[in-house]
Nucleic acid binder design. Sequence first.
DNA 1: CAGTTGTTTGACGCTAACGTAAAGCCATGA
DNA 2: TCATGGCTTTACGTTAGCGTCAAACAACTG
Lengths: 130, 130
Amino acid sequence: MTSPDADSPDLYSIADLAREFGISTRAIRFYESKGLISPERLGATRVFRRRDRARLILILRGKRLGFSLRDISDYLALYDADRGQQVNLLAEKVDERLELLEQQLADLQTTIAELQEIRKLARDRVSPAS
Amino acid sequence: MTSPDADSPDLYSIADLAREFGISTRAIRFYESKGLISPERLGATRVFRRRDRARLILILRGKRLGFSLRDISDYLALYDADRGQQVNLLAEKVDERLELLEQQLADLQTTIAELQEIRKLARDRVSPAS
DNA sequence: CAGTTGTTTGACGCTAACGTAAAGCCATGA
DNA sequence: TCATGGCTTTACGTTAGCGTCAAACAACTG
């Protein structure tokens, strides 16, 4: 899964990642200040690796799902805890979060269905009795 | 669908709705100030009806999905526009929003799958080779 | 050597979405 | 009558999530 695949570079500057994901460097520093990522340093300069980049992807997905950085932080901890100790506690936390997500999934499906209904009505009105 | 079903009351105070949905009256007033709902008035006192209550439900669902009040406002407009005029424009807007929601749906399903994988690993570690 | 580019750390600014008094208007009940 | 409860508006406070300078350093370039 996480084979050290060749070529794909393993060193990114803060600007690299900002460009790649269309966010500001300020945002990335802010995520670090909140402990969501912890890039290495070369002197004072941040050096990001694949792991940090992967975390960033998870962070942005979390944001698209409407989660707060606080939530996302907890969420990332679940990934880390794979290698962690309190495994039962982990399973509980994961289950909690899964419940939330499935509630959200239900909300989402309802909303999508409603909008499709609206679209249908709108189209019917334009070209009735197709 | 929207038959004026008997009994279910049709008059709610601001406190009624706050209680029912577990939010503050302040929040409800705030939604009104942003134009998301517009209850009638009896003197100065707000009087909510089924329509307002239904809108509130949509608002709260939107919030659970992580949308801003601005987004939710646009979203509510799609429902209203059913009776509206620019029907083609409506269909476009609806399609835009549907795209967003489906992106979100994909994100959500990915996230759920990943968490289930983590849970599986965690459980395996507790009771291996069941 | 001067200038440009990219980085850093503050630090202040800003918007959204309310929370939290404060102060006043009614209606009801002891 | 007056105290209590629920409603109102006005307005300032608060947190999250960055945006936006500012000042300083480091490396490269002509």
